[in-house]
Computed example of a mutant assay.
Amino acid sequence: MDRCDDIQVKELNKRASGHAFEVILSPSNTDPKEFPLSPLKKKETSLDEIKKKLDAAAERRKSQCAEVLKQLAEKQDHVKEVLQKAMEESCNFQKTAQEKLNQKMETYEENCTVRKAALNEKFKEKDKKLEEVKANKKAMQGREN
């Protein structure tokens, strides 16, 4: 067994695969009495210092509360703006949709009127032809008699 200042090495049984060692580290020599940092000694605080600290804490709380209220007001304003914009966009969409629907209805009515006029013209032409055929038939019958 070899021994150094802080390390102790002990050889274990030799094996076919190689050597085995156990390394033991000695504990460090630190005495709790020799703590490098001494605790800070508290100084006596006066009533005025305590009042100053309390006042400063109250001011911090007030400023923090004011900041939170300011942020909430900004968020509320933002929400109002977003809602206003959404309502405007909705109204604009409704107006354009209504205009498009009205335009389609007008186009449909115009097309319907044009189709009806074309059918009426077609029927009038058929009626004329029918009248001509009837007149020709009467004329033919009048010649035969």
Rank of each mutant, 00 (worst) to 15 (best):
A86N: 12
A20H: 12
L72D: 14
S26F: 08
T107Q: 13
K128G: 01
S26H: 10
L47K: 10
Q71A: 13
D55P: 02
Q76S: 15
A117N: 11
A135P: 00
K14Q: 08
E131C: 02
A20E: 13
K100M: 08
N102H: 05
N92S: 10
T45H: 14
L37F: 10
K62I: 03
L37A: 11
K43I: 00
K80A: 13
E89M: 05
E44S: 11
K42T: 06
T113N: 12
E88D: 11
A57V: 01
K42L: 12
F21S: 03
F21Q: 00
E132Y: 05
Q94N: 15
Q71E: 06
Q8E: 10
R61G: 10
T45G: 03
K42C: 07
Q94A: 15
K85V: 02
D31L: 13
K52T: 08
L83T: 09
E49Q: 14
L47W: 06
D6M: 09
F35T: 11
T107S: 09
K126Q: 14
M87V: 04
Q71Y: 03
A97E: 06
L83I: 11
E44N: 10
K128M: 09
N13G: 13
E99K: 05
V133K: 11
K41S: 13
E132V: 03
N29P: 08
E59K: 11
A66P: 00
D55S: 09
H78S: 13
L83M: 13
K100V: 08
F123M: 12
C91W: 04
K52S: 07
L72F: 10
S26G: 15
A118S: 10
Q94W: 09
V133R: 11
L47C: 06
S46I: 01
A56E: 10
F93P: 03
D48Q: 06
Q98G: 00
P32N: 06
E88P: 00
M1Q: 14
E125K: 15
V68Y: 07
E131P: 00
E110Y: 09
K116F: 02
H78Q: 12
L130R: 05
T107V: 08
A117F: 01
L83P: 01
E106Y: 03
T30S: 12
T45K: 15
K43Y: 01
K52I: 09
V68D: 11
C65K: 13
S17F: 09
E74G: 03
L130N: 14
N136E: 15
K80H: 04
A139G: 01
K138Y: 13
K43Q: 01
K41Q: 13
Y108N: 05
E109V: 02
E109G: 00
P36S: 04
K53Y: 02
K62H: 01
E74Y: 00
Y108T: 03
E49N: 04
D6W: 06
L83H: 06
K75H: 07
H78N: 12
S28N: 04
H19Q: 10
L130V: 07
N120P: 02
N111I: 03
S46R: 03
E106V: 03
S90P: 00
S38R: 15
E121D: 06
E81T: 15
E89I: 05
G142D: 12
P32M: 07
K95D: 08
E44V: 08
A86T: 09
A73D: 10
K14W: 01
E121C: 02
K10S: 14
E131L: 02
A86I: 06
R60K: 14
Q84C: 09
E131G: 00
